[in-house]
Amino acid sequence: MKVIFLKDVKGKGKKGEIKNVADGYANNFLFKQGLAIEATPANLKALE
């Protein structure tokens, strides 16, 4: 799953980066902790 990092995550990505991560990692950790959002077309456009 492609995500946009909202904060730096050690060993995974930095704020503003768009990366592929495992679905479970994104859903169970990144999204719940507010560290990333899904890289949907709307979210990508808002990032610009």
Rank of each mutant, 00 (worst) to 15 (best):
M1T: 13
V3Y: 01
N28S: 12
I37A: 07
F31Y: 06
K32R: 12
N20P: 08
F5T: 01
G13S: 04
N27K: 15
I18T: 06
A46I: 13
I18Y: 03
G16Q: 02
L30D: 00
G24I: 12
V9Q: 01
G24E: 14
L30K: 00
L6M: 08
I37D: 01
P41M: 10
L44C: 09
V9W: 03
G24F: 13
K7V: 14
L6T: 06
D8I: 03
K14N: 10
K2W: 15
V21I: 09
K10R: 12
L47K: 06
K7W: 10
Q33F: 15
G11L: 05
I18Q: 05
L47R: 07
I18P: 01
T40N: 08
I37Y: 05
I18H: 03
K10G: 08
Y25E: 08
K32V: 13
N27H: 14
E48T: 12
A39E: 02
N27V: 15
E48F: 14
I4E: 00
G16L: 05
A36L: 02
A36W: 03
Q33L: 15
A26T: 04
E17A: 05
K10W: 14
G34F: 09
I37H: 04
L35P: 01
Q33N: 14
V3Q: 01
G34Y: 08
V3P: 00
A46S: 10
D8F: 08
P41Q: 11
G34D: 06
L6C: 09
N28L: 11
A26H: 03
A26L: 06
F31S: 00
E17I: 03
G11I: 01
L6F: 04
K45G: 09
N20W: 15
I4H: 01
L44W: 04
E17K: 03
V9E: 01
F29G: 04
M1N: 03
M1A: 05
N28P: 03
Y25L: 08
E48A: 14
N28G: 12
E48C: 14
N28R: 13
P41S: 10
M1H: 03
L30Y: 04
E38V: 08
E38M: 11
V9F: 05
G34V: 04
N28H: 11
D23V: 15
K12W: 15
N20S: 13
G13A: 10
L44G: 04
N27W: 15
A42P: 06
G34K: 10
V21E: 02
I37W: 06
M1V: 14
Y25G: 04
A22P: 15
L35D: 02
K32S: 11
A46K: 13
P41Y: 11
L44D: 02
A36P: 00
L30W: 05
V3G: 00
K10L: 13
K7S: 10
K15H: 05
I4R: 03
L47F: 14
G16M: 06
Q33A: 12
A39Y: 12
P41G: 07
N43M: 09
L6D: 00
L30M: 03
A22R: 12
K15F: 06
G13D: 02
D8A: 07
A22F: 09
Q33Y: 15
K7Y: 12
Y25Q: 04
G24N: 14
K45V: 09
K45P: 05
L47A: 09
N28K: 11
F5L: 07
A42Q: 12
E38P: 14
P41W: 11
E17H: 04
G16R: 03
A22N: 14
G13H: 10
L44V: 10
Y25K: 05
A36S: 00
K2I: 13
K19G: 08
I4M: 08
K12P: 01
V3R: 00
D23A: 15
L35W: 11
I37P: 00
V3K: 03
K12R: 13
K7D: 06
A42C: 10
N20R: 13
G34R: 07
Q33E: 11
N27A: 13
K15I: 09
T40M: 03
K14V: 09
V3A: 02
G24R: 13
K7T: 12
L35M: 08
F5M: 05
Y25I: 08
K45Y: 11
K12N: 09
A42N: 10
K32C: 10
K7I: 11
Y25W: 09
T40V: 04
V21K: 00
T40P: 03
P41T: 10
G24M: 11
N27M: 15
L35T: 03
F31T: 05
L6N: 00
D23Q: 15
V21Y: 05
K14A: 10
G24A: 14
E48K: 12
K12D: 08
N20M: 15
N43Q: 07
K19Y: 08
I37Q: 06
G34W: 07
L35I: 07
I4Q: 02
T40S: 09
K12S: 13
A22T: 13
L35K: 04
L30S: 00
E38T: 06
K10N: 11
A36Y: 01
N20I: 15
K15R: 12
A22G: 11
K12C: 15
G11V: 01
V21Q: 01
F31A: 02
L35F: 11
L6H: 00
K7Q: 12
A36H: 00
F5V: 00
K45A: 12
F31P: 01
G24S: 14
F5G: 00
A36N: 01
G11W: 08
G11K: 06
K12G: 13
N43P: 02
K10H: 12
G13P: 01
N27P: 05
K15Y: 06
G34I: 03
L47W: 14
D23F: 15
K19H: 11
T40A: 03
N27D: 07
F29N: 06
A39T: 01
N27F: 15
K7M: 12
G34A: 06
E38K: 11
N43W: 04
D8C: 08
F29P: 02
E17D: 11
K2S: 11
Y25N: 04
G13R: 00
D23H: 15
G34S: 06
D8W: 10
D8V: 04
K19C: 08
N28M: 12
D23M: 15
E17W: 05
I37R: 05
L47M: 11
N43E: 05
F29D: 06
M1I: 15
E48W: 12
K7F: 13
A46D: 09
F29K: 06
K2E: 08
K32M: 11
G13F: 14
K10C: 13
D8G: 06
L35H: 05
K19Q: 08
L44S: 04
E48P: 09
V21R: 01
Q33H: 15
L47G: 05
V9H: 03
G16W: 11
V21G: 00
A46G: 10
Y25A: 05
Q33M: 15
L6K: 02
A39M: 06
G24V: 13
F31D: 01
G34Q: 07
V3C: 04
K14H: 10
G34T: 03
Q33C: 15
E48Y: 14
N43D: 04
I4T: 01
L44H: 04
V21L: 05
F29E: 07
Q33T: 10
L47E: 05
G11F: 08
K45C: 09
N43A: 12
N43Y: 06
G16K: 02
G24Y: 14
L35C: 04
T40Q: 04
E38W: 06
K14M: 12
G11N: 09
N43G: 05
V3W: 01
K14I: 09
V21D: 02
N28A: 12
E48L: 14
N27R: 15
L30P: 01
N43H: 07
A26I: 05
E48N: 13
I4K: 03
V21C: 08
A42V: 09
L47P: 04
K15W: 05
G34M: 08
A46F: 12
T40D: 05
A46N: 10
G24K: 12
L6R: 02
F31L: 12
T40F: 03
K45W: 10
D8S: 11
K10S: 08
A46R: 13
N28F: 11
K2F: 14
A39C: 08
L6Y: 02
D23I: 15
N20G: 07
I4N: 02
V9P: 01
K10Y: 14
T40H: 05
K19S: 08
K12I: 15
K19P: 00
F31R: 02
K45N: 09
F29Y: 14
E17R: 02
A42R: 09
D23E: 15
G16S: 03
Q33G: 07
D23Y: 15
A46C: 13
K7C: 14
E48M: 14
A36R: 00
F29W: 11
L47Q: 09
K15E: 07
E38I: 11
F31M: 06
A42Y: 10
N28Y: 12
N27I: 15
P41A: 12
N20T: 14
V21H: 02
K14T: 09
I4S: 00
K45F: 10
N43I: 09
L30I: 02
N27Y: 15
G11Y: 08
G13W: 13
G11D: 09
Y25D: 05
D8H: 09
I37E: 03
A42M: 09
M1P: 04
A39S: 04
Q33W: 15
I37T: 06
L6S: 02
A26F: 14
K12H: 15
F5Q: 01
G11E: 05
K32Y: 07
K32F: 08
K32I: 12
V21F: 08
V21P: 00
L47Y: 14
A36C: 04
D8E: 08
G11Q: 04
A42I: 08
F5I: 02
L44M: 11
Y25H: 03
E17S: 06
D8M: 05
K15P: 05
I18D: 00
N20Q: 13
A42F: 08
G16I: 01
A26R: 04
A46Y: 12
K14S: 09
A42D: 12
K12T: 11
A39K: 00
D23P: 15
F31N: 02
A36V: 07
K15Q: 11
G13L: 02
V3E: 01
D23N: 14
G16H: 07
K2C: 14
E17V: 04
M1F: 08
I37G: 01
G24Q: 13
N27Q: 14
